[in-house]
Design a protein around this nucleic acid. Structure first.
Length: 935
DNA sequence: CCTGTCACG
DNA sequence: GACGTACGTGACAGGG
């Protein structure tokens, strides 16, 4: 049937359907193979509903589902920033895209897309064709970009709100008729699509202007006439940008299409084709409903994996199944291994755990691998176990009954790298690094430790033992029972294979059970996005940084150690002299007795253990009263710290194979979302004292390279200004002012040009105090001023910045109501102590105030790090370290400038597009032969 | 193994 | 009115 008068065309915005279905539904997977299928399921349900709902007298005669195709369109040629702030398509959604096309065809509905065009353009073209042919059109979408098409028989239908949108509806939304919608959009811009528009002008103002001047062109030509000076200047200054915006929002309604409206005629679905498709997708309910509707028998769902369990069906998650170590299998040959690999392929997931000779990931040797695909069933593949007693050289014979490691890895590699099979681990970064060192790059992954962290940060730890006891009510076999402790501890390769099977397979079993438990909880607790955008993608980034390591010059450290030792010996002699006796300067107990019992100095206070307090603050007070001994002890302590923790200890961390130091980041260590660094901790290398800072000279660039450091300037204060909505602070950051000086000026009524360093210093302390949940006591101690005075400062601060007080009170109230606080990116930090009575209450409050600020800053740099590999791809640069607000790189000397540009771009825009901050984030860069020069 | 101390953001 | 307080970490040494 050709299309003409009396015909009614339905155009369905397919891409919008898909995204809505994807985000509205939990991450369903196909039971037989684990293929993610949630968006397809939602899409099919929506299509089916559309078909059912439109069978009345107003039924469409023609229908098409229209999709976007390709990420690059003609609009990107006009403006390279178009839609540039869109996030990557989620990993789980990608494989579902072609299936939605198949689904459309299965419903016997025309499926329309064209490379280089957006669905909106096709919808525009078809709408115009239909209107010219004298027919009616209903566009099923709520996308405001399509509102320009309404009128002359074209209407929209918002399937979410079940609401038709006609010209009046458009006028309601845009304040102008459909024919002027593009003019309003051109002025207002669109942050979702990154259309710039005119800065400072939103829909309201835009409509006002267009209504006054008739259309955009007249408005721009007569811009001089606008009364408001700011508005006038904006329009004059940004004319080109506004005109570009109009071209971006204007839909192409004259595309060349290789089909006609007649081809879109409504057809009855063919029962067999449709049911076959739905059956293949394993949509039980929908298959049945469609079959009923078509009046045919529903085909039986082919269950290719009757034993497999869908993690999304709670009843199928047998977390309470008993643990039976005897059921675990020891895999000793290729055939047995192939059976397990086939099982993993069949269900689409596999829990993996590695056993090694050491906890040092860069030195650990692989000893065995365990796998599990189903609760209660797991295997262990021994590969590097030794047998018998050591010979003279401390080595023993390779144990029998193990398949060659290379053979096992060759068989496992395709599975571990298969994009269709999710590899599940508890702290997968560890296993991924072990595999990487054996030539296998494990992907895609899930990590139960990180799931627990996203779900329950602040409630408990996230180690396997904790999680198993808490959620599975099962205490895993302690590793100590196999390895022993202390000097007599053995390495895992010396554990008898039979014992290893029970221990190692159990770990994989536990991991799988936890995964089945946590996966649906991520959605229920609304932390899927946190897990998928801030946790999971960071794993390979950290793994790579850790494996790269940073070059540390042993001679520099060694020379410093010697110098420190000499100075310490001198100080020690002096201290003993002053004390009139010899004692252990490093013992707080002995020192306390010398100071307060023997010398009878004032201020001796005993703590809960009965020992005198001898902290730096105590010693400083004594020193300021002219006592020499405590002053010398302070000097000695500083050197002792530098020597033992840094110049001595760091040397032991230099990897003999790489000559570099490889820290390990703990992703779930800090409740706020910050990383922690261990073995060694490279996030607390000295910088505040001149003597300490020199330790950074030992962190060097390789020959021909440069160390590059980029750090966020005042990121936490900027975030505070944003979340508390303090206009004066936001303005100051926008204008690049000295924020501490400004605070001081506001508080103490001192003009900026008369600011003294001391007043500024006090304001700075207050600014930091605010971030920490300020208290009079804390500020007093920090500034060494009377407590009353400190409280006076705070009162005045809150007077001048009432928004800050409001933010703090609101945050505490939120924590009390919900039991958690949140970062701007949705990370939840639980605050179980917030309702406590007594001294903990104060702690909990301040922690609750601090967590969203510290946590948001942590999220920002995480986002930057996740985007970094792509941003510096092709540049001769490697990311080495993260220190909370700083990233360290090692770059070829001739690539420095380009790297700074690329990294700064990513860091400064890291919050986008998820969060648009009201303040700019700025990044300072430094470079040099070593970390001291670069910082 | 716990406590005190001190290094960082 | 007294009490005890800045937020988040990790490493080391001493001492039981």
């Amino acid at each position: 049937m050709s299309f003409g008068k009396g015909c009614h065309l339905h155009l369905i915005d397919g891409s919008a359907f898909i995204f809505r279905a994807f985000h509205a539904l939990p991450p369903l997977t196909r039971k037989s193979d684990g293929l993610p299928i949630g968006a397809v399921a939602g899409f099919c349900n929506m299509i089916f509903k559309m078909v059912e709902d439109n069978k009345g007298p107003d039924a469409p005669t023609h229908v098409a589902v229209v999709f976007d195709k390709g990420s690059h369109t003609f609009r990107n040629d006009m403006y390279d920033q178009y839609k540039a702030n869109r996030d990557e398509m989620p990993e789980e959604l990608r494989p579902q895209m072609p299936l939605t096309r198949e689904a459309t065809r299965a419903f016997n509905i025309a499926c329309v897309e064209k490379e280089g065009f957006e669905a909106d353009d096709i919808i525009a073209t078809l709408s115009v064709q239909a209107r010219e042919a004298g027919g009616r059109v209903t566009i099923i979408s709520s996308d405001k970009d399509l509102m320009q098409l309404v009128g002359g028989g074209v209407e929209m239908f918002d399937a979410m709100k079940n609401k038709r949108i006609d010209s009046d509806g458009v006028r309601e939304k845009f304040g102008v008729g459909p024919e002027r919608v593009v003019d309003v959009q051109a002025l207002a811009g669109d942050s979702v699509d990154n259309v710039p528009g005119a800065p400072g002008i939103g829909i309201k103002t835009a409509a006002l202007l267009i209504n006054e001047y008739g259309d955009l062109e007249s408005l721009l030509d007569r811009a001089e006439e606008i009364k408001q000076p700011k508005r006038r200047q904006t329009l004059i200054d940004h004319r080109a940008q506004i005109e570009l915006s109009k071209r971006l929002v204007q839909l192409d309604d004259a595309m060349l299409l290789d089909f006609t409206l007649a081809d879109l005629e409504v057809k009855e679905p063919e029962a067999e084709a449709l049911l076959t498709f739905l059956n293949e997708m394993e949509f039980r309910t929908l298959t049945k409903r469609v079959a009923d509707n078509l009046g045919v028998e529903a085909p039986a769902i082919a269950d290719t994996n009757p034993a497999g369990a869908n993690p999304n069906e709670a009843a199928d998650a047998p977390v309470n199944l008993p643990f039976v170590p005897e059921d675990y299998e020891c895999v000793r040959d290729a055939d047995a291994l192939k059976t397990w690999i086939a099982k993993a392929h069949a269900c689409g997931w596999v829990a993996v755990d590695t056993e090694t000779t050491s906890l040092n990931e860069m030195r650990a040797e692989l000893v065995g691998i365990s796998l599990s695909v189903e609760p209660g069933q797991a295997c262990y593949i021994p590969l590097g176990h030794k047998d018998g007693v050591d010979d003279l050289f401390g080595s023993a014979a390779h144990a029998d009954g193990q398949m060659p490691m290379d053979d096992a890895l060759a068989l496992l590699k395709p599975l571990l790298e298969d994009p269709a099979v999710i590899k599940i681990g508890q702290n997968m970064k560890y296993d991924a690094k072990i595999f990487a060192r054996n030539g296998v790059s494990v992907a895609p992954i899930d990590d139960t430790m990180l799931m627990s962290y996203a779900l329950n940060a602040g409630l408990h730890g996230h180690g396997m033992d904790t999680l198993s006891e808490r959620y599975l009510e099962h205490t895993p076999i302690p590793i100590k029972s196999l390895l022993g402790t202390g000097k007599s501890a053995i390495t895992f390769d010396r554990v008898p294979v039979d014992d290893a099977v029970k221990y190692a397979a159990e770990d994989a079993d536990i991991t799988l059970r936890l995964w089945k438990l946590f996966k649906p909880q991520l959605h229920q607790k609304r932390v899927t996005t946190v897990y998928e955008t801030l946790e999971r993608p960071l794993v390979p980034v950290l793994a790579k940084m850790e494996m790269t390591g940073i070059k540390v010059d042993r001679d520099t450290l060694s020379r410093m150690s010697n110098a420190f030792a000499q100075k310490m010996a001198g100080l020690e002699a002096e201290i003993h002299e002053l004390a009139g006796q010899s004692f252990n300067v490093g013992s707080p107990k002995q020192l306390g007795e010398i100071l307060f019992d023997k010398m009878e100095l004032p201020g001796g206070k005993k703590g809960k253990t009965g020992a005198y307090a001898t902290g730096a603050d105590v010693l400083e007070d004594l020193a300021s009263e002219g006592h020499n001994l405590p002053a010398r002890v302070l000097d000695w302590r500083q050197l002792s710290k530098l020597k033992s923790t840094y110049t001595d200890a760091l040397q032991d961390h230099i990897n003999p194979d790489t000559g570099r130091v490889h820290t390990s980041y703990i992703q779930s260590g800090a409740n706020t979302g910050r990383l922690a660094s261990t073995d060694p901790n490279l996030q607390n290398i000295p910088v505040r004292s001149e003597e300490g800072r020199r330790i950074r000279e030992a962190f060097v660039a390789d020959e021909g390279k440069v160390i590059l450091s980029l750090d966020y300037s005042q990121i936490e204060l900027r975030i505070l200004a944003h979340v508390a909505g303090i206009e004066s602070l936001k303005q100051a950051f926008r204008e690049g002012q000295d924020i501490h000086a400004l605070t001081a000026s506001e508080m103490f009524d001192v003009p900026l040009d008369q600011m003294t360093p001391d007043i500024r210093r006090q304001a700075k302390a207050i600014n930091f105090g605010v971030i920490y949940g300020i208290s009079g006591f804390g500020l007093a101690r920090n500034l060494r001023i009377p407590r009353k005075e400190a409280q006076g400062f705070i009162d005045r601060y809150f007077e001048r910045f009432p928004g800050i007080k409001e933010y703090m009170d609101d945050t505490v109230a939120f924590a009390k109501e919900h039991g958690y606080v949140q970062t701007l990116f949705g990370r939840k930090i639980n605050t179980p102590e917030i309702g406590a009575k007594g001294p903990q209450a104060g702690f909990a409050k301040r922690a609750a105030i601090n967590a969203p600020i510290q946590g948001t800053a942590a999220d920002v740099i995480r986002r930057a790090m996740i985007r970094m590999p792509e941003a510096i791809e092709g540049l001769p640069a490697k990311m080495l370290l993260q220190v909370h607000d700083e990233l360290l790189f090692e770059v070829d000397a001739d690539g420095v400038d380009k790297t700074i540009d690329a990294v700064r771009e990513i860091m400064e825009n890291a919050s986008m597009p998820a969060v648009k901050l009201d303040v700019p984030l700025t990044v300072d860069a430094g470079q040099g032969a070593n970390w001291a020069e670069a910082h």
